[in-house]
Amino acid sequence: MTPDLFGETAPPGLAYLPGFALAEEAALIGAALGVAAAAPLRVMSTPGGKKMSVAATNCGAAGWVSDARGYRYERRDPLTSLPWPAMPGLFLTLAQAAAAQAGFAGFNPDACLINCYEPGAKMALHQDKDEADLTAPIVSISLGLPAVFLWGGANRSDKPARLPLHSGDVVVWGGATRLNFHGIAPLPSGHHPPLGAARLNLTFRRALRA
Rank of each mutant, 00 (worst) to 15 (best):
M1I: 09
M1G: 14
T2S: 12
T2K: 13
P3A: 13
D4H: 13
L5Y: 02
L5N: 05
L5W: 05
T9I: 11
A10P: 01
P11F: 06
P11E: 03
P12L: 13
P12V: 03
G13P: 10
A15P: 03
Y16Q: 09
L17T: 03
L17A: 05
L17S: 05
P18F: 06
P18E: 06
P18K: 10
G19T: 05
G19I: 04
F20I: 04
A21N: 03
L22V: 12
L22G: 11
E24G: 02
E25H: 15
E25C: 13
E25M: 11
L28N: 11
L28C: 12
L28T: 08
G30K: 11
G30T: 01
A31K: 04
A31C: 08
A32K: 01
A32F: 04
A32Q: 03
V35P: 05
V35Q: 06
A36D: 09
A36Q: 07
A36T: 07
A36I: 00
A37L: 09
A37S: 15
A37E: 15
A39W: 05
P40Q: 13
L41V: 00
L41S: 02
L41C: 00
R42A: 09
R42P: 00
V43R: 15
M44N: 04
T46W: 11
T46R: 13
G48Y: 04
G49W: 11
K50H: 12
K50P: 00
K51I: 07
K51T: 14
K51Q: 15
M52R: 14
S53R: 14
A55M: 03
A56C: 13
A56Q: 14
T57Y: 02
T57W: 01
N58C: 13
C59L: 10
G60S: 09
G60W: 04
A62P: 07
A62F: 05
G63E: 02
W64I: 02
V65K: 04
V65R: 09
V65T: 11
S66W: 06
D67G: 08
D67P: 07
D67V: 03
A68V: 09
Y71F: 13
Y73K: 04
Y73W: 06
E74P: 00
R76M: 08
R76F: 14
P78Q: 07
P78W: 04
P78C: 07
P78L: 05
P78G: 06
L79R: 10
T80D: 15
S81I: 00
L82P: 01
L82Y: 01
W84N: 03
P85T: 02
M87L: 09
P88K: 05
P88I: 08
G89Y: 04
G89D: 15
F91Y: 09
L92K: 08
